[in-house]
């Protein structure tokens, strides 16, 4: 849930204190990405909404914002999928079963999956962007009959970079659910699609005015996907993007994650395309 920052001093005292979590599983997804499953040492589960993140800490190394990739219906298990891109994430990826990590949060505004009830859902992920969307898809699948057609459209660099292969298969087996994968380039043994994720958006069948689109990936990709979705007739207010900036405090105090008028740690990370489209086109912002 978003943190109430009406009293910054009180909020900071509580919200900046990490809780200890024990690693109960470390599963390698790709050559540089692992999924950690964590349980709270104090036994109190961490309730979260799909799309929220925590500040995850490797004690003595540092702290980084990581989206929650687990099932919102299972708050007792905190699941994070982490790509090794630097010192802190390298330490997190190397955490072994039994190690203790710190986590603050959950922070930010999530996908608001329930807004899609009664209509179609189009999930578009690029690379590691499938991690925060996994929580949203799990929520949809859990209440499958409440939604119309569901498309999970996933782009990755190569077949070796694909995440959550078992999940993709399970989702594809759901009724009226299409899972489509495309990679930038492939060996000739790859039987799937090769190209750009926007091609999947172009080919998908959905009722655009009644569609909620959830998009996560590199910002350039989200710009192109947003353009394709709106060209297909999805209102920009119904296209939601998860944005990433340099989040530090997580509670709207430090300003590191500011994107014009938005503090992404509290106003985001999920924002609608109509709110951020002007900013996405500004260089270096």
């Amino acid at each position: 849930m978003p943190v109430d920052v009406a009293d910054p001093a009180t909020a900071a005292a509580d919200a900046l204190l990490p809780r200890p979590f024990r690693v109960v599983a470390n599963r390698r997804e790709t050559s540089d990405t692992v999924t950690l499953e964590l349980e709270p040492l104090d036994g109190d589960g961490l309730a979260f909404a799909a799309g929220q993140f925590t500040m995850l800490q490797a004690f003595g190394v540092g702290e980084v914002p990581i989206s929650i990739s687990g099932d919102p219906a299972r708050p007792g298990l905190l699941v994070h999928t982490i790509r090794d891109v630097g010192g802190v994430t390298r330490a997190l990826c190397a955490a072994e079963v039994g190690d203790v990590l710190g986590a603050r949060g959950p922070y930010g505004r999530g996908w608001g999956v329930s807004d899609a009830r009664g209509g179609d859902v189009v999930v578009v992920a690029g690379g590691i962007g499938l991690a925060p969307l996994r929580a949203a898809v799990l929520e949809v699948v859990r209440a499958r009959s409440g939604f119309g057609r569901v498309h999970v459209l996933y782009g990755a660099r190569t077949e070796d970079d694909l995440l959550f292969g078992d999940d993709l298969e399970e989702w594809a087996a759901e009724p009226d659910t299409e899972v489509a994968v495309i990679v930038d380039r492939a060996a000739t043994s790859w039987p799937g699609r090769v190209g750009l994720v926007t091609e999947l958006v172009r080919a998908a069948a959905f009722d655009a005015p009644r569609t909620l689109a959830l998009v996560c990936g590199p910002e350039v990709m989200m710009r192109f996907v947003g353009a394709e979705l709106t060209a297909r007739g999805v209102p920009a207010s119904q296209v939601r993007l998860s944005l990433e900036r340099n989040m530090r405090c997580g509670v709207g105090l430090c300003g590191h994650c500011q994107l014009r008028e938005y503090l992404l740690c509290v106003d985001g990370p999920v924002l609608s395309l109509d709110a951020v489209r002007p900013q996405l086109g500004i260089r270096e912002l």
Binding site: V64, R83, V85, G86, G87, V88, T89, G126, G127, I128, G155, A156, R157, D161, D184, G217, P218, V220, M221, E244
Partner: peptide, 11 residues
């Protein structure tokens, strides 16, 4: 060519 799914962010 932009190698979209690579990372440009360390952490």
């Amino acid at each position: 060519l932009l190698d979209l799914y690579g990372t440009d962010r360390a952490g």
